Amino acid sequence: MNEHVKEANKKRIEAIIKNLETRNMSGYYCETAEDAKNKILSMISEGDLVSWGGSASLDELGIKKELKNVLDGTAPSKEEALENRRKAFMADVYLTGTNAVTMDGELVNIDKTGNRVAAMCFGPKKVIVVAGINKIVENEDAAVGRIRTEACVPNAIRLGLMTPCAVTGKCAHCLGQSMCCYTVTTRASAIKDRIHIILVNEHLGY
């Protein structure tokens, strides 16, 4: 990435971090994905029970293999994954990505099962969110538009779902097997500093 673009991105992230503070959320700047992984690990204490939902950003960080005391919400067995998603509400730390973060510091997510957005809202003692520079948008409307075109389509393909968007590449506002069952905007955290957002000056996930 061009050095001037990286510097411009850094200034955008710094502005978002200030806005997150007004919303009872904590923001952190990381230059690289490796820095982000190390930052997240430093925020997890010995013995913490850690869980997560589906996140391409977390997968790219490679952080899951560094953790021991875990509830894997993406376990290969559907039964185990579902049970772990239920138990995740009692986790000490919940790791997740976000589909979009606005310049004003709002998190916007579209979810199929709802476990990821539910845990962000309530349950786990600490929520750590990682977001690449590609997730930054101007406002909530731009966030929803971005998610429907740049996140839901590749995610549906990854999961092998025959949604209209997986076939055509375009959102059809479908129901049934839809990827878009829940749309949640996190305007603020009811508990100060419960939600921590790691903003990375690299592209992560989709």
Rank of each mutant, 00 (worst) to 15 (best):
M1F: 15
N2C: 12
H4I: 13
K6V: 12
R12Q: 14
I13H: 04
A15R: 14
I17C: 08
E21R: 15
S26L: 13
S26D: 15
C30M: 11
C30W: 00
E34G: 00
E34I: 05
A36I: 07
N38C: 04
K39I: 02
S42V: 08
M43Q: 06
I44V: 04
G47V: 12
L49H: 03
S51G: 12
S55A: 08
D59E: 11
G62E: 02
K64P: 09
K65S: 11
L67E: 00
L67D: 04
K68Y: 11
N69I: 02
V70F: 05
L71Q: 01
D72C: 01
G73L: 07
T74R: 09
A75Y: 04
A75E: 01
S77W: 07
S77C: 03
E79P: 06
E80W: 05
E80H: 00
N84I: 01
K87R: 12
A88S: 13
F89H: 11
F89Q: 12
M90V: 14
L95Y: 07
L95D: 06
G97W: 10
T98C: 11
N99C: 09
V101M: 09
G105M: 03
L107D: 04
I110V: 14
K112V: 13
G114I: 04
N115F: 09
A118Y: 01
A119R: 08
C121F: 08
C121H: 07
K125Y: 11
K126S: 04
N134M: 00
N134E: 06
K135S: 06
V137D: 00
V137Q: 09
E138S: 15
D141M: 15
V144A: 03
G145F: 10
I147R: 05
I147Y: 08
A151E: 09
A151G: 09
A151N: 14
C152M: 14
V153S: 06
V153N: 08
P154C: 09
N155P: 03
M162D: 15
M162A: 14
P164M: 03
C165P: 01
C165F: 05
V167G: 04
V167E: 12
T168E: 06
T168P: 03
K170D: 05
K170P: 02
A172G: 02
M179F: 03
M179P: 06
Y182T: 02
T183A: 12
T185P: 09
R187W: 12
S189C: 08
I191R: 14
I191W: 12
R194D: 08
I195R: 06
H196A: 10
N201K: 10
N201H: 07
H203W: 13
